[in-house]
Structures are given as structure tokens and as C-alpha cells.
Amino acid sequence: MQMLHVFRNTPHGREELLQTAQFCKTMQASPVVYIPEFTKFLLYLDNDVVQVDLDKTFLRSPGTAREHVEEIMAEMDVDNWRFFVPRHFSTPFLPDVPVGFHFMGCPHTIADLRSKAGAGYIGPRIRRILASAAFPLLLFSPVFKPFTRIAVMFGGKANAATALRLAVRLHRLSGLPISMYTAEEGRRSRKYYEKLLSKNALTGVFAQSVSDWQIFPRKEFVENLYRIPHDALVVMGAYGHGTIRQLLMGSTVEIIQAHLPNNLLIAGPHYRGLA
């Protein structure tokens, strides 16, 4: 398993790489570090090509970048990592980054969060990557803090199962305990979600892996986010909603992103499981 990390040689970038390193170490994945030479690259996904525009900070002090990466990896005691050097270019200034990775770390500028951090805004680019990528994205926290448990957001018809499957997979890889959080929407009660579990053949997995399940009303969603432990990796699914609905209410991902400082791992509808 490999995780793509786009490195920037700044203190923020260091925090991001530390998070990738810890994630990979915990999940037995190997980081693949890309030190960009251009401010943009292309991801050719299954049915979409996404151009990722980086800001100038990613090109800062290229002389020390490799050295810094090596230092951070040594500090985190991660040895199975490597650099990624793009082999194909769509145009001379536009490298292609392959998409055969199992995770991708998502710096804030890709997420376009710096400008709208307060509003809980997931950039359209992230949305598009999520919409067609087979790998989940790890959204970084501003500062590195090791997570010691997994919190899975079990809600939404299609997202719930995806998120739980991913969480269980991570649980098996890392041995970290899972707690599950569900916001009751409308008339959907605990029964409904139990049915959802059995419909997706997840009842057994749930019993084995999930240590605690908290259900709270959707109306108090934001208030109840306090229940999620500060040292948890939050796992959730994201499904493409209609544009209008998004404008009206904002997606759950955005609410969570806005209110939780935790690391956030998001799987899109094409997430294929970890082979």
C-alpha cells in the first residue's frame, strides 16, 4: 500500500509530512513523497482528469527539500518510503501523477481551505478528486498530533457502508479501536441504521470491530461533534450530492471539516477497498 504525499518545504509542510508518516506507519503503508517542480500537476482518474494547482509555497527552497524529507522520515522512524519523480508530462510544464496509490494526503492549498477555512469549505478540486478516485484522501490538521483511535461517521445511505468498511480495514491494519457516530436524520432511528448494517453484510464486522456506537439527533450535529475524541482519525464517506443541495445546506464533510481539527480520511463513491 502506498500513500502519495505532495511535499512543501515549509513548517506547514513539515506538519503535513509528519501526519502522513504517522498515518502510514500506523496503517503499514509506504509514503511516496512528491516534491513538485511546477505549481500544477494532473491526476488522470478513471473518468476525469483533475488539475491540481499548488501555490508558490510548494516550490520554496527546493535545495533543502529532499534533505528535510529524509530528516522527517528518519525522525518518524519510517523506512519504507520513496520519492516520486514524474515520468510523463502532458505538456512540458505539466507532469502527470499516477493514480495507483491507496491513499493521498491532501494539503490545504489543494483543498483551497486557507481562504475559506472558517466557512468549512472543501474545494471543488477535492470534490472532483473524491468523485472519481479509487483512493481515500487524508485531509491534514494544521498541526501534527498522533491519532490513537478511529472515529467513523456512519451516516447517509451510501456513505455509511463505505466509511465503515474503510474504518474496519484500518482497524485491522492498525489495531486501533473504532467508535462509530451516527446523526439520526429525520425519522431514521437506530433500527434503520442496524438494518443498513445487515443489508451491507456488515453486522458481523460491526460486532467484532466497533467498540462503541453513539447516536445523536441530526439537529444537534455540530454540538455533538464534541463527542468525537480529540485524538481520533475521523473516517467518513462522501457521495456526490446535487449542486443545489450543496449550496443550500453544505455537505456533512464540510461541516465536519469546519468544526473538527482532527485528521480526516474521506472515501469517495469509487473507493474500491484496499486490494
Binding site: 511546477f38 500544477k40 494532473l42 488522470y44 482528469v49 488539475q51 502532458s90 505538456t91
Partner: peptide, 26 residues
């Protein structure tokens, strides 16, 4: 636009050769 532009036609051929003809909206 931040296109990272090349000549044009070679990019189309490249995308047809390698990526099943995926091209950017912009």
C-alpha cells in the same frame, strides 16, 4: 486559466494515447 499549455494538437494525441482521451474542461 493556468493551462500549462503546449502546442495543442500533441496534447490531444498524448491524451488519446495514454489516458483514453481525457482532457481538461478549461
Amino acid at each position: 486559466i493556468r493551462e500549462g499549455a503546449g502546442h495543442g494538437v500533441p496534447e490531444v494525441i498524448y491524451s488519446v494515447s495514454r489516458h483514453g482521451g481525457l482532457l481538461r474542461m478549461r
